[in-house]
Design a protein around this nucleic acid. Structure first.
Lengths: 331, 331
DNA sequence: TTGTAAGCGTTATCAT
DNA sequence: ATGATAACGCTTACAA
């Protein structure tokens, strides 16, 4: 591997000048700059990241911890983060915690040694641990709020409220909510919001789950959706897909017999038969924004504590007024 | 941040001894070792990765480039790789190429600066570029074979052949294959294998696609499955899920009217109605093995060139003999 | 505009 | 068993 010294020698300048020619070209005379660049090119010079990190104190690495990649929720998030990192010439150090707080802590510790800062998607695990971690190193939370720690939160809660509002408006009063994933912060938020709103509207909300976000689970739970329910709300779109199929197999047509909606829009439910009403959650933006926030933090810019990204319902053909009741209410 | 020097001072020893006490405890007297460890603990000493990398020439980082994370095929792969890396105290530097060779090349270049070696999942892009890259840095290919370069390949081809064999054995002679993703190396392999085998067996194979691996695409293509086809083979299980639903909506029952099978088993097709015959592809193993192979390479152990991981068909209720023809053939 | 030289925090090579 | 000391390759005052 050619070092900067080699380049400098080849270009007939000092290490310092070579470094400047490459990193801060404006500080170097045109001619010298070109000579150095040529030499670097010719020798196939690649700066040694470790050496640079050692002097500058910056690795250019961002640690990202997600609970899993099986849940399709996290893929767009990671992709968004990666793209944003790429644009700022950083790299992503990815780790998967498998929803295990101990493992997550270990990973965070180890990543901290290599990364300039951490982005954590940590639906389980304690607030105080996160607070403490934040003190040690720049940290941005995703989809979770802990005090005033910097966070990027997809505002599913209020979007979900709109979605439920839509069902209520259509006239539904017997609604099944399929919840999950088990133990997650966001799940608790969603359940709380929905329960309260349904109660306020005098509707009955039955909660099923918590379930994993899979097609299979949707099929399985389809059988236990009470006959009275005129609408089903699933927290995830794979679940909704499974429900769509499972309800069909069970002889309940969507939306004639029962309405169906999903609290995310991961699998583009727009092309199903019928297309499914869903919440559009800006996951890629969330990932990208988390990176931006972290870089701001690293640059000493301390901005707002938590950013909420709006999630908006996309109304499609799978939601309609219930068989009997609606007309009276709407008239 | 406490440095090794601080620890050494606190323990009343030299830097060298402190380093040894922590890295190679067996070289240090019990008492000293304990003193150093205590000091390190007390000061919250975290070794500086950059400094270590500078002296040892090892960063402990493994670059992993995947084309996307939207295709659920890659999630298990990444998870497998991450777990294996974690076990060997390495970390994963993740980048997404978006199937863009230019971007992939740029990412690979940049990752090479930080990582000890690279794992690339690169269905598109040129062989020669990969060969050249391999010369520059340790590299392991996944799901692609280029000459004698180290690679881990999920042997979908032969598993797929078994799967088609199963359909042929059941008596199917009019088979639709839904292919994809567009332009991928594995897609070409699959198409080639299937076309040849079908021809040899005197069966007709109609290829649809290439299509993306999504539920929607499956629904959309369901309409264009020819009426004569008694069996449909999809290269991906989300596609199969979509087909299952789409065929149902179109009034064709599985497996009575048409058999259905998938060339991977990502979404546990075991729980659908009916359960879908699929190919079990060991993706996590592939990811983990790629890491192992790379570490071997780094350690100077040069082993077999390409490892094939067997993919095995899992026969379920979605495949059955065709309506009329089968009996005669089997009798 | 360019060069000199001092680190950055480890590990590794010698001595002792 | 331990300690000095020299790398590792780069950036950055400071000097010229």
């Amino acid at each position: 591997m050619a070092t900067l010294m080699d380049v400098a020698r080849a270009a007939g300048v000092s290490k310092a000048t070579a470094s400047r020619a490459l990193q801060r070209p404006e500080l170097v005379a045109e001619a010298t700059r070109e000579r150095v660049r040529d030499a670097a090119e010719r020798l196939g010079f690649r700066p040694n990241a470790a050496a640079r990190a050692l002097t500058t104190g910056r690795t250019g690495l961002i640690g990202l911890i997600v609970p899993t990649l099986s849940n399709p929720f996290f893929a767009p998030l990671v992709m968004g983060a990666q793209r944003a990192a790429e644009e700022t010439h950083s790299h992503l150090l990815l780790a998967v915690s498998e929803y295990d707080p101990a493992r997550e802590a270990a990973l965070a510790d180890r990543l901290s040694e290599q990364a300039d800062g951490l982005i954590m998607v940590t639906p389980v695990g304690s607030d105080t641990a996160l607070r403490e971690r934040f003190r040690a190193r720049p940290l941005v939370l995703v989809d979770r709020q802990v005090g005033r720690l910097p966070a990027v939160v997809a505002d599913t809660a209020s979007g979900l409220a709109e979605l439920l509002g839509h069902l209520l408006e259509l006239g539904h009063r017997e609604i099944a909510y399929v919840s999950g994933p088990a133990g997650s912060w966001a799940d608790r938020q969603r359940c709380a919001v929905l329960t309260e709103q349904a109660a306020a509207a005098g509707a009955r909300l039955r909660v099923r789950g918590p379930l994993p976000p899979t097609f299979d689970a949707g099929i399985a739970v389809a059988g236990s959706i009470p006959a009275q329910a005129t609408a089903v709300l699933a927290y995830n779109s794979y679940l909704a897909l499974g429900l769509l199929h499972g309800l069909g197999v069970a002889g309940r047509r969507v939306p004639e017999d029962v309405s169906l909606a999903a609290a995310d829009d991961l699998s583009t439910l727009s092309a199903t038969t019928p297309p499914v009403t869903a919440l559009d959650v800006p996951l890629e933006e969330a990932g990208a924004l988390a990176v931006t926030r972290l870089l701001d933090l690293l640059a000493g810019r301390r901005r707002t504590v938590a950013t909420h990204l709006p999630a908006r319902p996309v109304l499609r053909a799978s939601t309609a007024p219930p068989r009997g009741g609606a007309a009276g209410i709407r008239a």
